[in-house]
Design a protein around this nucleic acid. Structure first.
Lengths: 352, 352
DNA sequence: TCCCGAAGTTCGATTTAAATG
DNA sequence: GCATTTAAATCGAACTTCGGG
């Protein structure tokens, strides 16, 4: 057809800008300017604007996201890259990310690479093609810095240009032994993290510095290390085994501090198997505060990572950095430290 | 500028179709046809095709998703609507959805409406604007059927046109009492679901029919109902309270079957508080198999919902229905039943 | 008529320069 | 020249129509 009567509606029956324009008898450009409150619409008289707004509302006009994005070169979308999601860690982070992005009218595309480094490369490429404007990663370390603003939660490594959300491990971990000592414990066993894990060293550093400050003796025979492993569930089993051995060694212990909640759950099971009750025979304290902690019998005392807050902060920083790039502002990769807090429940008891 | 030398690269330095075309000295349309293996490219000689493919590879050409989507009116994106995500239920479903969609080269946009019905309307509108081609919902009931293919997991209600992933509750639940009876239990307490919840009735129906088949007496004094509530954590507390009352009543019970795992955890805590051990004094069985079950002390015997499989199935059906709509095929809203399975752990023991 | 490919239109919105009274 | 509005170019790819040898 050359020029005949063209329907303002497209083939799918959606209301387009043109439909609104024809309805009010104006040009699409005019309608666009008004609806977006563009500077070029300054001169358009109030009465015309109202007509346009009324028409848009009446026709239930919704701008086409794809068309708009294509033109403005903006998608208001970030890529969320997770290693895993079955654990409560990942999902709590998502929750925080979602809440923040939703509020800012951003969306996110999720990929889970399930411990596969090759997938990670492919997936970030796919996200790039989809036009994401930045990345938020959880427990994922890039080999090289991505070409977009990137904020990492957990599992981070120093990469120039990427911002890390860091838990203040050293300060946070102190709350554990501090709590135990306050309750009168002195014979404390420790299950440390795997030597290869970045989190392990600063945490132990925190314990040591606290121990020194209160002259608490750290008995090397009561200190064991989690073996290296990629699998989160494995720390449960490792916690079980290590505690079992500790029990067999018959060393006197009144409290046990585990590297994380999974390890603590494993330890509690081992204690129970040996006929030892928590906290009556041994206090146990974990780290993370996963969902199961408060449901556990006994409810687990633990050091809480503010996971939702960390997710929200990650989203916040991502948007901030996206804007910086758009405005060609230079912005340093500031790392944000988040403070953990002690969640006292019933797996620890006073000896006093 | 009027017509001078136009750079094939756009302002962001991305490689466009035109860039590839200029590189090989052909028209963009030709390149497009070849790269997409379009029917119109049939006649293009092999040698030209190779030149084009080589150039595309060399320049690392990636088609612009927005432009392509706009033109083809396809986004390969579905909207994932969740009520909540902190619990392991939501995240396991996501995991299944993600795995399936990823394989089919779809993406998904996530919104969490956090028990707010108003939000739900707004959010599905937003997803629509973003061009999603279908919905997958978890524990979310629309007031009216959405204008796109929709598949619901959990919390569904009969709405014409929407497909539900249904757990075969009636058959599944039988496995609970069956297991207990096989272990020699006869005095079994039941904590049923809230009367207002759709799942409750069929499950109880399953228990009753099984009881009848083995002449198991269901003592009404051992049957209690969870109160109505939107909050998942509340079933933990309700389980605790109801069990506490049951204990106080001093009725003889050797096993307890809870409506879900949360309720079971609450029950176990109440038993522990009363000095009763699981499974020595009382066996306990749950429903769902959330992540905490296997970590619990004792590990909880439960009836597993195949959550990842349900998520994958939902994604599967969603894509199937999206394709049906595109091909203008009529497709009935087939509901898919998934079979739960019994996960025997250590919270149940044999009396024989 | 076949072979090969170019040119132009479309998707829907934004934005510039230009035109009308 | 001023206030209003419009036509046309653009974003990047895909599809349809045409045309030269």
């Amino acid at each position: 057809m050359s020029k005949g009567k063209i329907s303002p509606l497209n083939s799918h029956g959606t209301i387009t800008l043109r439909a609104v324009a024809e309805h009010v008898g104006l040009a699409p450009g005019t309608v666009s300017a008004v609806l977006n409150n563009a500077p070029s619409a300054r001169s358009i008289p109030e009465h015309t604007r109202q007509r346009i707004h009324a028409a848009a509302k009446e026709l239930k006009y919704r701008p086409n996201f794809l068309a708009r994005s294509l033109r403005k070169q903006r998608t208001y979308t970030v890529g969320l890259i997770l290693e895993e999601i079955g654990d409560s860690y990942g999902s709590m982070i998502i929750s925080g990310v979602e809440a923040y992005l939703r509020e800012k009218n951003y969306f996110f595309l999720t990929v889970i690479h399930r411990h596969d480094a090759t997938m990670l490369r492919d997936y970030s490429q796919l996200l790039l093609e989809r036009g994401v404007e930045g990345f938020v990663t959880v427990d994922t370390s890039f080999q090289e810095a991505p070409p977009l603003p990137t904020v990492c939660v957990a599992g981070h490594r120093a990469l120039k240009g990427v911002t890390n959300i860091i838990l203040d491990q050293e300060q946070g971990i102190r709350m554990g032994p501090e709590h135990l000592v306050r309750l009168g414990h002195r014979k404390i066993a420790f299950i440390r993290g795997p030597k290869t894990l970045g989190d392990s060293a600063p945490r132990w550093q925190g314990v040591r510095s606290f121990a020194k400050s209160v002259a608490l003796e750290l008995d090397p025979r009561l200190i064991v290390d989690l073996p290296e492993s990629g699998d989160p569930i494995s720390s449960f089993e490792a916690g079980y085994k290590l505690t079992e051995e500790l029990i067999k060694s018959k060393r006197s212990v009144t409290a046990l501090m585990a590297f994380d909640d999974m390890t603590a759950f494993g330890a509690i099971r081992a204690l129970a198997k040996a006929g030892l009750r928590v906290p009556e025979h041994c206090s146990v304290i974990g780290f993370d505060d996963v969902a199961a902690c408060s449901l556990y019998t006994p409810p687990l005392t633990t050091i809480r990572q503010p996971m939702e807050a960390m997710g929200a902060m990650a989203a916040n920083l991502a948007i901030e950095r996206i804007n910086a790039v758009l405005e060609k502002r230079e912005i340093a990769a500031v790392h944000r430290k988040m403070a953990p807090e002690l969640a006292v429940r019933e797996s620890t008891r006073s000896l006093l």
